[in-house]
Amino acid sequence: MHAPGNGPAFAIYYSLLAAFGVLANLATIVILSRGRCGLSKCITQYLISMAVTDFLVIIAAVILSRLRVIYFPANFLSTTPGCSVIIVFSCASRDSSVWLTVAFTFDRYLAICCPELKTKYCTEKTAVVVITVVCMMCCLKNIPFYFIYEPMYMIDKVPWYCSIKASNYISIAWRVYDWLDRILTPCLPFVLILLLNVLTVRHILLASRVRRRLRAERNGKNQGDSEMESRRKSIVLLFAISGSFLLLWLTYVVNFLFVQISGSNYSIGSNANDPKFILQECGYMLQLLSSCTNTCIYAGTQTKFRRELKDAFKLFFNLIAKLHK
């Protein structure tokens, strides 16, 4: 874990991120839960679960972690047990969000590239099971983080703040666990999502070429393809979500690889002139931004979602107007 920057720029960025992230994810959860967006129940389950975990990331990693440090540096959450719980909460929600994105990408890969498995795997029941297992595993995986910290200060027998125990720096078990943590999130998901997207694109290109040839022979070149058009929106949604994840996590992954290859340490503190600190903090900022982008993606790619969002805004402003009167 790192000490987030606490300058004015960070205060403004994380405040805006928290406000937008909370509102955007709550709106997404409500709209998708109503089931009026024309999406299958399987896709809807994944999108709702991703919105819930993104909302929890904003609460834990932005509001309770970064904004707390900036605006309220000394409160009960700053005690060693308090900040240890927040760290576990942040990591578990982050990992759940990442791996649910992988699960969604894999689900869409099977639906598009493996039609023989689609009817068995791409169902609402399977989605609920996968979501439950992913979230439980992510929570269990991050429990050890609670036990690696010790107090920085003891004031009136109360332990304050979190500092990694010195023994963990020389512990082989901890070093192995730390490596596994970095590989499982986000390196392995990054590779899996990239690979699944490449395979999906390859399949789509081959299938489209064959389908166009067959339809041209049967019906003439100017005939439309309703089946391909119906799949287009689902494909656009998949690529938008996974592409956004890859772009916003890229800096974090680059920083991780740089630290491992160069043998340097993660930057601690807030030296704005240190290139390592700039790369590291940009990685964290973009990583957290990924918890807010899916709402914009849905609004940009899904007509029915956009209509529901507009109706929600109208209802909200009408309510404000009535209360003002």
Rank of each mutant, 00 (worst) to 15 (best):
Y161I: 04
K157W: 11
R175M: 12
L192E: 09
F147D: 12
L195G: 12
K165V: 13
N197D: 13
N168P: 00
I148E: 12
R202V: 03
L192V: 15
Y169N: 03
F147L: 09
S167T: 11
I164R: 15
Y169D: 07
F147N: 14
K157T: 03
V191P: 02
Y153A: 00
T200W: 09
K157R: 07
P189L: 11
R202F: 06
V176Q: 02
D178V: 01
W179Y: 15
A207F: 03
L199F: 12
Y177G: 02
T200S: 12
Y153T: 08
L195E: 06
N197C: 09
M152V: 13
K165W: 14
T185K: 07
L188T: 00
E150C: 03
L205E: 09
M152P: 00
L196D: 03
I204F: 10
H203T: 03
N197S: 01
L195F: 09
P159C: 13
V158W: 03
R182Q: 14
I155F: 11
W174H: 13
P186Y: 10
S167Q: 08
I204Y: 11
A166T: 15
L192H: 04
A173C: 03
K157H: 15
A166W: 14
L180D: 07
E150K: 08
A173R: 03
L180E: 07
R175Q: 15
V176L: 13
Y161A: 00
T200C: 07
R175T: 07
P186T: 10
R202D: 05
H203M: 01
V191T: 08
W179G: 10
C187L: 15
Y177T: 02
L199S: 06
N168R: 06
L194C: 10
T200Q: 02
L180C: 14
I148R: 06
I183G: 09
A207K: 03
Y169E: 06
I172T: 09
R175L: 10
L194D: 02
I193N: 02
L205H: 11
L184G: 02
P159R: 06
I183C: 13
L184R: 05
I155P: 00
L199R: 08
D181M: 11
S171H: 05
Y161M: 11
L195I: 08
D178E: 08
I170Q: 12
V201G: 00
S208T: 11
V198S: 02
I193A: 02
S171Y: 05
A173Q: 09
Y149F: 15
S167C: 07
I148D: 09
L195R: 02
L196K: 01
L188C: 01
C162R: 09
I170Y: 15
A173D: 07
D181L: 11
L196T: 07
R182K: 08
M154D: 15
L205V: 15
L184V: 06
T200K: 05
L195K: 03
F147R: 01
E150R: 06
